[in-house]
Amino acid sequence: MIEISGLTRYYGDLCALDKISLTIERGKILGLLGPNGAGKTTAMRILTGFLAPTEGTVIVKGHSIDDGMLKIKKLIGYLPESAPVYQDMFVYDYLQYVADIREMPAESREDRIKEIAGICGLEDVMHRSIHELSKGYKQRVGLAHAMIGDPEILILDEPTMGLDPNQIVEIREIIRKIGREKTVILSSHILSEVEATCDRVVIINRGRIVADGSTEELKRTSAEDYSISLLLKGAPELEIKQLFDGVAGIASVDASGEDGMIRVRLSCRTGDDLREQVYSRVKTKDWALLELIRESKSLESIFSELTQEKEG
């Protein structure tokens, strides 16, 4: 459906995207994940024709962005970051305008506008000026804008930003439903969102793809790794570090806390269960052990590992 090859984009000397290649199949929801400034928005902007790549190309359903951009635009519904829709129009007029440009047939248009207003929860504000609306409602207008033409590809840049928790759940449900037949690409830096909605996750950092796979796959690649979380009372931080230093399999020790309560995170790089060893070490000291939990890797830790390692 979408083939991205060698996509590179510079802003002056700054490299925002560095030779990204990716193939996206139909009927999948792809989550683009990455810290701020990683290149998520740049990638989406190139896909939608707002920016041109410095190098590389994208082919969407046989059309190249170099000469078939108009055809590609017809296939894509796009919600830019923070949904910058026209402020001075009524919601209804705005949707009419989008329907005009998307050359939607006149006879089914009213029904479609009603339908999309229902999906996005806009019925109550159809005859209000967009600039009067709250951020969450503007975001919904942006979503309606992207979805109204029933496009084959939906590209959503941080779709749930500014929405309340109930609305987030609803929108995720809608995205999942659409994702069954259509191709959806969404970006986010909220990991739980990506975990909840996406079939496939691509993690971008500093313009490069650092991980690519389903959430399960990503977790499995670091299956041997886990962390042990301890809550200790009356333990000086310095001593904690010394205590666990010698244990084989512990990659790093993080301790933080105040008022005598210290939260310790031990990152373990081994298949063996180190809990017993850890416990026996703690036992040698006169500290109170309040918690000892083994945590398997969350998407969070994979994410922070992948995006921080590169910075060093």
Binding site: T48, G49, K73, Y78, P80
Partner: peptide, 14 residues
């Protein structure tokens, strides 16, 4: 300024 330019350009128009 408003950012709506991004929406305008990415709609199916040249």
């Amino acid at each position: 300024n408003v950012g709506s330019y991004e929406i305008l350009v990415t709609m199916p128009v040249t």
